[in-house]
C-alpha cells in the first residue's frame, strides 16, 4: 500500500502512534480499568479481551464518524451508547461461536465492554470531530495500546501466578505459584507495579534532561 502523499501524512502517523504510547488509554489516561484488572489472570483471556475491545472500538469510531453530521448534539451520548451496545452484542455472539471456553472465562465482561470508558471517550473526543479514515487510525492505535496494556498485566500474572505462559509451563515442576497473582489483589499490585515503573522512567528521564 502506498501512502497518500498529502499534507495530512505525518499527522496520520501521529494519530496512530499516540494511542500506543504517549496517550496510552490504560497506563497514561487510566481509562477502562475494570476489564484491565478483571480478565488479565491469563494471557489468552487478556488477548481475547484486547482484540474484542479493539474491534468494538474500530467499528464504533467508524460509524460515529460517518454519522457525525447527522447525530443531533443533544442526544449524541445516547446515540453513541446505542451504537457501541450494538457492536458489543455482535462481538458477544461472535466470541460465543468461535470459542465457548473463552466466552465462559470472560463471562459478563464481554457485555461490559459497552461501559468501557475508552470507547465512549474516543467516540466523543475524536470520532465525532474527525474524518472516518482518521477515526479508524485513532481507534487502531488506542485499541493496540489497550491490548498492549492488558497483555503486560496478563503475562506477569500468568507467569507468576501459574508458572506458565499461554497455558504452557515455563518454570518446571519445582516452581511454587504465587497464588495471590491470579486473585483480585494481585491485579491491583501488578497494575500498580507497572505504573510505578513508568513513573520511575519518567522521573529519571526528566532528571536526565535537567542534568545533561
Amino acid at each position: 500500500m502506498d501512502q497518500p502523499v498529502s499534507p495530512q501524512g505525518p499527522p496520520n502517523m501521529d494519530i496512530f502512534l499516540k494511542g500506543l504510547w504517549k496517550e496510552n488509554p490504560t497506563f497514561v489516561q487510566l481509562l477502562g480499568m475494570c476489564p484491565v484488572l478483571a480478565v488479565t489472570n491469563s494471557v489468552i483471556n487478556a488477548l481475547a479481551m484486547g482484540l474484542a475491545t479493539m474491534f468494538v472500538l474500530i467499528m464504533s469510531n467508524l460509524l460515529v464518524s460517518l454519522l457525525r453530521k447527522v447525530i443531533p448534539k443533544q442526544v449524541r451520548i445516547a446515540t453513541y451508547i446505542l451504537i457501541i451496545a450494538t457492536f458489543v452484542t455482535v462481538t458477544d455472539y461472535a466470541i460465543q461461536a468461535i470459542s465457548i471456553e473463552v466466552h465462559k472465562s470472560l463471562g459478563a465482561f464481554i457485555a461490559l465492554i459497552v461501559v468501557n470508558c475508552i470507547i465512549l471517550g474516543r467516540a466523543e473526543a475524536f470520532a465525532s470531530k474527525n474524518s472516518p479514515w482518521k477515526s479508524i487510525l485513532d481507534a487502531l492505535g488506542m485499541g493496540l495500546g489497550f491490548t498492549f496494556a492488558v497483555l503486560c498485566l496478563g503475562v506477569v500474572r500468568e507467569l507468576l501466578g501459574n508458572g506458565s505462559l499461554l497455558g504452557i509451563p515455563v518454570f518446571g515442576e519445582s516452581f511454587e505459584p504465587w497464588i495471590i497473582m491470579i486473585l483480585p489483589g494481585g491485579a491491583f499490585f501488578v497494575l500498580g507495579g507497572w505504573l510505578l515503573l513508568f513513573n520511575w522512567l519518567k522521573i529519571r528521564k526528566s532528571a536526565g534532561v535537567q542534568h545533561g
Binding site: 483480585p184 491491583f188 499490585f189 500498580g192 510505578l196 513513573n199
Partner: peptide, 20 residues
C-alpha cells in the same frame, strides 16, 4: 515515584487482600 494512581492501586490491592 508512588505519587498518584500507583499508590492508590497498591492500597486497593491491600484492601482487596483484606476483603478475601
Amino acid at each position: 515515584v508512588v505519587k498518584g494512581a500507583a499508590l492508590t492501586l497498591i492500597v486497593a490491592g491491600i484492601l482487596s487482600m483484606a476483603f478475601m
